[in-house]
Design a protein around this nucleic acid. Structure first.
Length: 476
DNA sequence: ATCGGCTCGCGCAA
DNA sequence: TGCGCGAAGCCGAT
């Protein structure tokens, strides 16, 4: 049985018969998915049919790129195959126009008895939920946090101020939320349903998707759960041991590279932690030692990885869940807003437009190289993401403009874009979110500054520029 | 190479 | 009420 703390019903409606639908939102996987498992649990208890639905928002919202669907569609195809092994059909629904106008949102079909969604703390889901509840009063709507280790509403009841305030809560509660996942079973109530639900023609679906066709390709990554699990195993055997010392080196790919898989839900962060503990033979209660102070060797890397994979990921979810201004200036902490506003009239040596940033036409080749790494591969090095965003603040007319540009570029080009981690990364860099104030300086005010000299400490910037800006990738 | 100051607010100890 | 300390730092003094 799914831990009931991972589930909440969003209305008071009672089930009176009909098909249970799991509307898959961001957790695109058929295994280790508590929302799917909960939907099956519910359907079984009612002896009801179970269908999984995925909605393609078919208009040009920010982030709808071919690159996104190059990731999503193969992931869904893998999900479809896995689901069919258990007698469960996957259906893809297109929304032809903007969904959230009153006119376009209609009641779900009569044969639907309950809807389960996975939790996603972004605006469009909030609007979708609001509209669903308004137009489908008699259909129970359940939300399952299938994404976080600790359900976002359980970890904290408010927006957390800093990493250190949420870290305590994570360390306290994580051991209570590391139960193994249930297994999907053959859904016998669906007898005959697969026969009448043919397999999806993915070539046709791909043709029907409306998106920005100029941004394509998933770079070095193969989308999907299988590929994600394979990458995880490789990370353990090749990179984990040096994770805490090498991950910030801009020339070495010593990051886990799992974020695109995590963001799209191909793999669950809880599964990653369970596998990590199994592989390293570490108990979770021992894994938090040395998180901050002088960690080294195996424990250092385990602690550093849990810090990134749980603490910082879940503070991002916490921020978006409790602050609806997660992607704008308004969401910044008060001290930073006051300080940035005061500094907004400071002289700027360089001011670039969105287009100049997009085309990597700044005076700074390190910045340009980072931008090109993101544009061509879909993944900028983790350390440089901070430098990159801070320079957008430095070279934009206003902080309001800067956060807009950073969020847009991140949403459009990063494989792990359109995700709480991305919004918090931009807000940390530009708006001092979850950070503390530092000595004042022009444009930044009290927001932490980062200089080129800092990047140079993290590796060979000349080699990085050669590789990503001048395309001499074979030098490595 | 190392260190203190910069500067605000949360959370806990008292 | 006081005090320690903090998402990945910078700068200048020693």
């Amino acid at each position: 049985m799914i831990n009931p703390l991972r589930v909440r019903q969003l209305n008071k409606a009672e089930y009176t018969g009909g098909t249970v639908v799991y509307q898959m939102c961001r957790d695109i996987r058929a295994i280790d998915n508590d929302a799917l498992l909960y939907a099956q649990e519910l359907a079984r208890s009612k002896k009801a049919q179970l269908v999984v639905n995925y909605v393609i928002w078919n208009y040009q919202w920010q982030g709808a790129t071919r690159r996104l669907y190059d990731w999503v569609l193969p992931s869904l195809q893998e999900v479809e195959q896995e689901l069919r092994k258990h007698n469960i059909p996957l259906v893809v629904t297109f929304e032809e126009e903007k969904l959230f106008t009153k006119k376009k949102f209609t009641k779900v079909p009569d044969h639907i008895g309950a809807v389960v969604i996975d939790e996603l703390p972004l605006h469009f889901m909030g609007k979708w939920k609001e509209q669903f509840l308004k137009h489908n009063e008699s259909i129970p709507l359940y939300e399952v946090d299938a994404h976080n280790c600790i359900p976002v509403w359980e970890l904290s009841h408010k927006q957390e101020f800093a990493a250190h305030t949420i870290r305590r809560k994570v360390h306290e509660k994580l051991p209570l939320f590391l139960e193994d996942f249930g297994k999907l079973t053959m859904h016998t109530a669906n007898a005959g349903l697969l026969v009448t639900t043919p397999e999806i023609n993915w070539t046709e679906v791909s043709k029907l998707v409306i998106c920005d066709e100029t941004i394509t390709g998933t770079g070095q990554f193969i989308p999907g759960t299988r590929a994600g699990m394979k990458l995880l195993k490789e990370f353990f055997t090749t990179t984990l041991a040096m994770y805490d010392t090498t991950r910030n080196d801009i020339n070495i790919d010593a990051q886990s590279n799992l974020s695109p898989y995590i963001a799209h839900g191909n793999i669950s962060r809880r599964r990653i932690i369970l596998e990590l503990l199994k592989y390293t033979k570490v108990e979770i209660t021992d894994a938090f030692d040395n998180v901050q102070n002088g960690s080294n060797g195996k424990m250092g890397s385990v602690a550093a990885f849990i810090e990134e994979c749980v603490v910082r990921a879940e503070i991002s979810e916490n921020f978006c869940f409790y602050n609806s201004s997660y992607d704008t200036f308004d969401g910044f902490p008060e001290w930073a807003k006051v300080s940035l506003a005061k500094a907004s009239t400071d002289d700027r040596e360089y001011v670039y437009t969105y287009k100049e940033f997009r085309n990597a036409k700044t005076h700074d080749d390190i910045w340009n190289a980072a931008q090109m790494q993101m544009v061509t591969t879909g993944k900028m090095h983790g350390y440089l993401r901070m430098y990159w965003a801070k320079k957008i603040l430095e070279w934009s007319a206003t902080p309001q403009e800067a956060i807009k540009i950073a969020v847009k570029l991140n949403d459009l080009y990063e494989l792990d874009g359109r995700d709480p981690n991305g919004y918090v990364g931009c807000a940390w860099s530009i708006g001092g979110l979850h950070d503390r104030p530092w000595f004042g300086r022009p444009i930044f005010g009290a927001v932490r500054y980062m200089a080129e000299s800092g990047v140079k400490k993290r590796g060979d910037t000349k080699a990085y520029v050669e590789k990503w800006l001048h395309g001499k990738q074979n030098l490595f």
